[in-house]
Every structure is written in structure tokens, then in C-alpha cells.
Computed example of a mutant assay.
Amino acid sequence: MTYETVLYSKDDTGIARVTLNRPEVRNAISETMQRELRDIWDDVRQDNDVRCVILSGAGHSFCTGIDRGEAISEDNTDAMARGDFPGYPTPWVFDDPGRDIGPKSRDCWKPVIAAVSGMACGGAFYLLGEVEFIIASDDATFFDPHVTYGMTASFEPIQMLAKMPFQEIMRLSLLGADERMSAERAREIGLVTEVAPRDELMERAEWAAGVIAGAPALAIQGTMRALWAGLELSRQQAIEIAHYFTRIGGDADALKEGQARFASGKRPEWRLR
């Protein structure tokens, strides 16, 4: 499949690769990219052969957010300064530009691993807030420049509340472009699960995606649903519905095969992280 701003491919191992491909603007998200990501997540959702996705950025950065050069003309900026959002009849009508960018926003419940190198900032958090986990290169940095340039940071840091401690995303949001979080600090706080040399980043992501794609799809997706629900519900509510996820996510053949594998004494050649 050919797109203007995103590289999208699938292979026979069950892995799809989605690469933001506007390196000349550090993969800033244009309206075209929004539409193409929407279509790609819809395709991933409907293709039973896709079991895991690796999301990355071409060139030197992962993504630098919404393309401000395209999104805000001089006329629009003047109007917004007056409290008038062009094209909307009242203050209660607003189309969030991130509504089509992330997989969960498109009801796509396939595992997505983000492989982040270089800058990841602002609107990049629409994507990172909806992935299963992040692997970063040692040169990755995270920041949110909204307040530096006179804008309220809201949608993006709210997305990241599920990924970062409150005071960390608050600091990142309030300090704007004046401070960047390193990959190592991101790992320390749990935003990033692993930091790799840049030339090893995709190998690490490919390995993890291969393990996930090789597991029973129903069990993987059931596990995802359970954990995302547990993130948003109270503990007791999540425990109450856990048995539904277990029942729905159960596949008799996969369970039988898995138990036979365990009984055989064979164990995976595991990695230590």
C-alpha cells in the first residue's frame, strides 16, 4: 500500500511496520498524515494476519507533533488570539486533530510497539499515549513545547498521564521547550521500557514484535483489553470483569498447544532486559 506521508508494510510473520515519513519536517503530522494514519489503523484492525505493529519515524526524529506551519495560518493565529476559533460556530465545537492519529482512537486493538529515536514532542504524544510500550534509542528526547509558544497543553499531556507519573508530565508540560527529558530519564520513570543504541533500536523492536506476533492472537488481544480496562477502572471494577476477558480471550486449541509445550519441558531462549 502506498501513502504520501507514511510507509506501511506487512510481512508473513504477522508484523506490520508503520513509519512516519516526513523527515524534512521531523515527521510533523499534516492533515494528509492524519488521514493516512486513520486509514492504516483501520486496515490493521481488520486484517487478521496482522498480529503486532512497529511504529517509528523516518530520519532523525520520531515525530514533532502537529505541523504548525500547515495548521495555523497568520489569519487563524490572529483569530485564535481573540478567542475565535475559525470554522467553529461556538466554543463548544472543536475537532481535535489527534482523534484519528492513535490506534485506540480508531478502535484498533492490536499491539503497537513504538521505536522512538530523536525528538518526540507535542502531538507525538497522541501516538505514544496509545501504544503498548516504547523502546527508545539513546539519543531520544521527550518534551512538550505548547506553553512556550502560547498554547495550552491539554490533549497531549492528558494522553501521557497513563504513561508517566503526574509530576513528571506536569513538569514536562510547564517547562515547555526549555527542558527535554532524556531517554534514560524516561526509562527511569517507566515511560520507556528499554533504551538501546540507535543502530540497535529496530532490532530490539523487531525481536519483541516477533515474540508477540508468534503468540495466540486472541490471548494477546484479550490481555491488552484487560490491562487497558484495568488502567481506567478502579481496581475492584477491573477484577470484577477480569473473568470475562479470560473467558472471551480463551482459545481451546491454543491453550491445549501451550500446555503441551509446557509439559514437554521446552522453554524459550529468553533475553534478560
Rank of each mutant, 00 (worst) to 15 (best):
A213G: 02
L218K: 14
A209G: 10
A208H: 04
A219L: 11
A213Y: 00
E232N: 09
G214S: 09
Q221E: 15
A213W: 06
L231V: 13
G210D: 03
A229M: 12
A205I: 02
M224G: 11
A209E: 01
Q221K: 15
A208W: 01
G230M: 02
G222V: 10
A209T: 06
L233E: 10
A229L: 09
I220G: 04
W228A: 04
A229R: 12
A213F: 00
L231W: 13
A215Y: 06
T223D: 10
A209S: 05
A226P: 04
I220R: 01
R225T: 09
S234C: 07
L231S: 15
G230K: 01
L218Q: 13
V211G: 01
A205K: 09
L218M: 12
G222A: 07
S234A: 01
G230I: 07
G214L: 00
A219H: 14
G230D: 04
P216G: 03
E206V: 08
L231R: 15
I220V: 15
A213T: 09
L227W: 13
E206F: 00
A215N: 08
E232Y: 12
L227M: 15
T223W: 08
G230Q: 08
E206L: 03
A205F: 04
A226T: 04
G230F: 00
R225K: 15
L233S: 02
E232W: 10
A209F: 11
W228G: 03
L218N: 12
V211S: 12
E232G: 04
R225M: 15
T223V: 01
S234Q: 11
Q221H: 13
A219Y: 03
G222E: 05
A208R: 11
A217E: 15
P216L: 04
V211T: 05
A219D: 13
A215W: 06
I212S: 01
E232M: 12
V211R: 10
I220C: 03
L227D: 12
G214D: 05
T223S: 13
Q221V: 01
A209Q: 08
I212L: 10
G230Y: 08
G210F: 07
L233V: 07
W228V: 06
A217G: 12
V211H: 04
G214H: 01
V211E: 03
E232I: 08
L218S: 00
A217Y: 05
P216A: 08
A226M: 14
L233N: 02
A205R: 08
S234F: 04
A229D: 13
W207F: 05
G222M: 00
A217F: 05
M224Q: 09
A226W: 06
L231P: 06
A209D: 01
Q221T: 14
